[in-house]
Computed example of a mutant assay.
Amino acid sequence: MKKKLMWLAAFGFISFALMLITKVPALGLDKAEFCGQCHVMDEQVDTYLHSAHRSGATCGDCHIPHSLVYGATYKAYTGTRDIVAVVTDTAPKEIRVTKLGKDILQENCLRCHGQMLELVGDTKRDGGKYCFDCHRSTPHQK
């Protein structure tokens, strides 16, 4: 029983470490070059590369939470989900962001542009709109 528990703990530790590795910037897993490897992302990558955000933000800067553990967990989950969808040919023709994804995008808009938004505040507060409801074409055209 002890041996099984030790193997389970080792597997858990290794799995957790591998998940955290997804947040290592040097691996480039947040960049358009990585995200664009799947043909379903062609339009998103193309519009991003023609936007002002290309010079100061990666895909992960907008779409992934910035805390280490939560960000790595979210990235591992969404990455696995996306790979399964591509491999099983069930990826949607039109990419749509989930409610959780919208909340993460909003948080990251505020994180980067918070100083500019000091007077306005969080546009989503009190039933308001997400930043990208008005800035729909930043950085993607749809």
Rank of each mutant, 00 (worst) to 15 (best):
R111M: 00
A32M: 05
Q115K: 15
C109H: 01
P25C: 02
T78M: 14
C131L: 06
E94I: 14
M1N: 04
L49D: 10
E43A: 01
G114P: 14
V87E: 07
R125T: 10
V69D: 07
L20K: 07
D89H: 10
I14T: 06
E43R: 02
V86I: 11
Y70A: 13
T58V: 09
A26F: 13
L49P: 10
D82N: 10
R111D: 00
A10F: 11
I95F: 13
L119H: 02
S137V: 01
Q141H: 12
P25M: 01
L117R: 03
K31I: 14
Q106A: 02
L5R: 12
C59E: 06
D82R: 14
S67V: 02
H53P: 06
L49K: 07
H113Q: 04
P65K: 11
K75V: 11
A9G: 12
S137D: 03
C112Y: 05
V97L: 07
I83E: 15
Y70G: 08
F16C: 07
F16G: 07
D82Y: 08
W7A: 10
G79T: 13
R136T: 03
T123M: 15
Y70E: 11
P25V: 00
F16P: 07
K102F: 00
V24S: 02
H135K: 00
A32P: 01
A57Y: 11
K129Y: 15
Q44A: 02
P92F: 08
Q37C: 14
H113V: 03
G114T: 07
R136K: 04
E107L: 05
K3E: 07
V120I: 10
G79V: 13
I64Y: 12
G101C: 05
R54H: 02
C112R: 00
F13A: 13
D122Q: 04
L27W: 01
T80Q: 07
D126M: 00
T98H: 08
T73Y: 15
G127T: 04
K4T: 09
E107P: 01
T123A: 05
S55C: 12
T88N: 09
R96Y: 10
